[in-house]
Amino acid sequence: MSQVKQTALPRNIAPRRMPWKLYMRRYGTLYLLLIVPIAFFLLFRYTPMSYILLAFKKNNILVPPWQVPWVKNNGFDWFIKAFKDRSFQTALYNTIFLNLLDLIVGMPMPIMMALLLNELAFPKYKRVTQTVLYLPHFLSWVIISGITLRLFGTHDGIINKLLGTEIPFVSSENNWRATYIFLGIWKECGWNTIIYLAALTGISPELYEAAEVDGASRWRKIWHITLPGIRSTIVVLLIMNLGHILGSEFDRPFTLSNKLVEGASKTISIFVYERGIMGQQYALSTAVGLFQSVVCVIFLLISNALAKKFGERGIW
């Protein structure tokens, strides 16, 4: 090991050892170009973040938050209020539950779909199939919710009429969760295959040829070449999804919900909408948003560390 270290890159290539002036002359333009995106992030991402302070202040948005007095309990009053609030507890539970279901059921689907598409022999058929699969992605949830009721209504829905049953797809909480997950997969599965299909093209055809020479079956090839070939992509996406475990979409649960299943469908985003926008509780909803972000960052860090431990590259 120590030998390897000694025979590292020759000194003159290592940028650190390059005279500063020479380095800047060579790469200075790149740094100059970088100023624009950095300025963008500072101005539009970090400056607004100063308003996170509102989470610890009294509810007043007429003046900047640093001019507003702190709330009691060392500024943590809104957090305490939120956690004592039954509707927030339900929203938190629902958010985690629905996101976990999405992760467990929804994540393997595009991988399987990508593998299937990859195995298709006729390029034209493959292309048409792909396009058909992408299309639902472009429908908004508002439209899908309208279609959902026509399809899955307990008594008037087409599915129940065809089956001659009265299954409450959208009016019992557990069934609603299943419908919610199913619709999520239906809408996004095709679209999410894109990234896996891209990763699949990166696998060297020579590996498949070698496997063929060795007499490997189609299934063996998938298991020993294709899946390991896209493993790092899968891990990166898994980490990113875990980072969103407490994040919540608004339009999907909001439009698909109805009064019979609100116990399952009220997520944090709807809580924030009801309290923050409709009830002008800006400080409370900022606190909830901050909590969401902090938990997401923690999840991201943990999953990234785990990925590294298992020999993957992680996302940074």
Binding site: S87, K259, E262, G263, F271, E274, R275, G279, Q280, Q281
Partner: peptide, 14 residues
């Protein structure tokens, strides 16, 4: 009453 926003109305209907 100023704190509850739309949440009680929504809870009532539920």
């Amino acid at each position: 009453e100023t704190e509850v926003g739309g949440s009680l109305t929504s809870k009532r209907d539920e």
